[in-house]
Simulated assay, not measured.
Amino acid sequence: MTGDTSQRTIRVGIVGLGGIGHHHAERIADAPAQLVGGVDISPDARSRFASAYGVPTFETFDALYDEGIDAAIVTTPNKFHEEYAVQALESGIDVLLEKPLANTLESAERIAEASRDADAFCMVGFNNRFSPAVEVFKSYQREGRFGELTHVEANWVRRRGIPGRGSWFTSEEVSGGGALLDIGVHAIDLALHFLDFPEVVEVTGDTRSEFGDRDDYTYLEMYGEDVEDADFDVDDHASAYIRTADGKSVSLEVAWATNRPPTNDFVVQGTDGGATFDRESGDLTVHQVSDTGAPHFTDTEVETRTNDTHKREQRAFFEAVRAGEAPDRNTVEEALTVQRVIDAIYRSAETGRAVELADETDAATPERVRQ
């Protein structure tokens, strides 16, 4: 979209009318936007969405486009991100695309290429960047409070949290991966965001599937339905170590299921200070040392307002649509970096060796090897 900086209401459609589509639809009511319709190949999903929000629903994107939309929010399963995002971009429609960028690196590359060539932009749904605590951290970082950041521990571990055995989440063909692509993608993005997205040069990783295909998988609650005898061919746990060209590093631990207490925190280390961010609670703690008066340590709790990160993300997207300018945050290129790291973790897990990325970003995409 170009040129219009008026206060007109943005006309938006949602593609993919499952749970995440409803999540976005509910928040549009408080945004400077009008929900005008939705797209899904499932008649039942279309019917439920139409009943819930009083808008027409369609089987194809072309029908939604004919309604006269300015923007599209794409919330389909990962395999279909490319189809709808590229179609929207080529139609001149700005896109908010839920994470991850795609189910494979090859598909992600094609989305990025379409975005570069389009008279429209694509913003990627890494909503955790819109946490007030994360924004406080970034402002402190710009002020130099931490010195030079050197390492991030990124941990997103559930005790039991497989999102529906037998759903598209647990199908490698549709999702592209398991815990690593579902929650690991958020952890990697946020860690690299803390480090200002340096160039990644080497990745070592391992993935496992220990719980998802067990008949005796015991849980207290499940996001989706637990289908008896369902196929489960994705990872439920991943560990990785990521090195950057400027000497920074990230250690990653993500899991859908483990026999340990859950954790959802990010520990950022710097030469003059550090911080711990608890994603679940939104709490930020700043760690510093000083010899003022006497040598001492300080751990400062930062209290912020409770905020809906998806709502704030939507507002930033709609403001960019209205301004006709691609946002400088949550960019396709950043999402493509995250996708390359994920692909490298899978390849490292398969070969048992570190994967060098420095020479790959401008070369043909290497074939992805999966178990």
Rank of each mutant, 00 (worst) to 15 (best):
Q339P: 01
Y84F: 13
F137L: 14
L284C: 04
Y241D: 00
L149I: 10
L284W: 06
W256V: 14
T306D: 14
R329I: 14
H24N: 09
P163M: 06
I188R: 09
D362A: 10
D235F: 08
K311D: 11
E113I: 12
A323W: 09
I41C: 03
L97G: 01
D233W: 05
S290H: 03
S139Y: 08
T337Y: 07
L105H: 07
G247D: 03
S239V: 15
E360M: 13
N78V: 10
L195W: 04
G13D: 06
L192S: 02
S115W: 00
T218W: 09
D4S: 15
T204P: 02
I242N: 10
D206V: 13
S239I: 15
T351D: 05
L101W: 05
P43N: 08
D278I: 01
E172R: 15
Q87D: 13
N307D: 10
R340M: 08
V86Y: 07
D308C: 11
E225R: 15
A238K: 07
E301D: 09
I10A: 13
G293D: 09
E319L: 05
Y241F: 11
D30M: 11
E172I: 08
D213M: 11
A102Y: 06
L220T: 15
R8W: 04
D236W: 05
I342E: 03
P295N: 06
P261K: 15
I10F: 05
F130R: 14
V355M: 12
G166P: 00
E113F: 12
L336P: 07
E26S: 15
N128I: 08
I20N: 05
G21S: 05
I345C: 01
Y223A: 15
P366Y: 02
R340D: 01
A191L: 07
S107D: 08
R370H: 12
E221A: 15
R142S: 15
R48D: 09
R260F: 00
G274N: 08
F80C: 01
H237Y: 14
T263H: 09
L101P: 06
A354E: 02
A363C: 08
N155D: 06
A33T: 05
R27E: 02
V234S: 06
R312I: 12
E172M: 12
T218Y: 11
W168Q: 04
V321D: 01
V136G: 00
E313P: 00
A335W: 10
G161K: 12
I242Y: 10
T57D: 06
S115L: 08
R27C: 03
E319V: 08
Y84L: 08
V286G: 07
A320Q: 06
S290M: 02
A354M: 11
S290D: 02
V332M: 01
F80R: 02
V250P: 04
E113W: 08
R142I: 12
T300Y: 11
T309R: 11
A358F: 01
T271C: 10
E109L: 03
D235I: 00
K311M: 11
C122M: 09
V341W: 04
G16T: 07
G68L: 13
T150F: 02
K79S: 11
I10H: 01
D216W: 12
M123I: 00
D343P: 00
T244E: 04
R214Y: 12
L220P: 00
S209W: 01
A133C: 09
V332Y: 01
D119W: 04
P77E: 09
S281R: 15
F232P: 00
I188V: 12
